[in-house]
């Protein structure tokens, strides 16, 4: 579901499996407690192994974007698989400049 890795002030969250309102709440808490403790400059959200997601997967990015702005950091979203592309383009999340 979630693997966290911290390196050179970059916190990477490898997300996997199904991302919905239920699992996103658990993931959010874990990421937020780590960012609070480590104060990374960049939070990388890796979507490579996400098999399913509803709009909670977008809410997760928006919420982390706000959190990271508060500590002067930024968010990068990486490896969005083809089957999730439609949700991402529908959301207009690319206007936040987080898509890498």
């Amino acid at each position: 579901m979630l693997e966290l890795e911290f390196n050179n002030s970059v916190l990477t969250a490898h997300l996997s499996g199904e991302l919905d309102h239920h699992s996103a709440a658990v993931i959010r808490k874990k990421i937020d407690s780590k960012t609070e403790a480590l104060k990374p400059k960049t939070l990388k959200l890796d979507y490579k192994d996400v098999q399913f997601m509803d709009s909670s997967g977008i809410g997760l990015i928006m919420g982390r974007y706000r959190q990271m702005s508060l500590i002067g950091g930024n968010v990068e979203v990486t490896n969005v698989p083809p089957h999730l592309k439609r949700m991402f383009s529908l959301s207009g999340i690319d206007t936040l400049g987080v898509m890498k």
Binding site: D54, S55, G59, M62, G63, M87, L90
Partner: peptide, 15 residues
């Protein structure tokens, strides 16, 4: 709130 994208109905309409 902050964690919801406000996309639920837009997704249903589009999908």
């Amino acid at each position: 709130g902050d964690e919801r994208a406000g996309l639920g109905f837009a997704v249903m309409q589009s999908f």
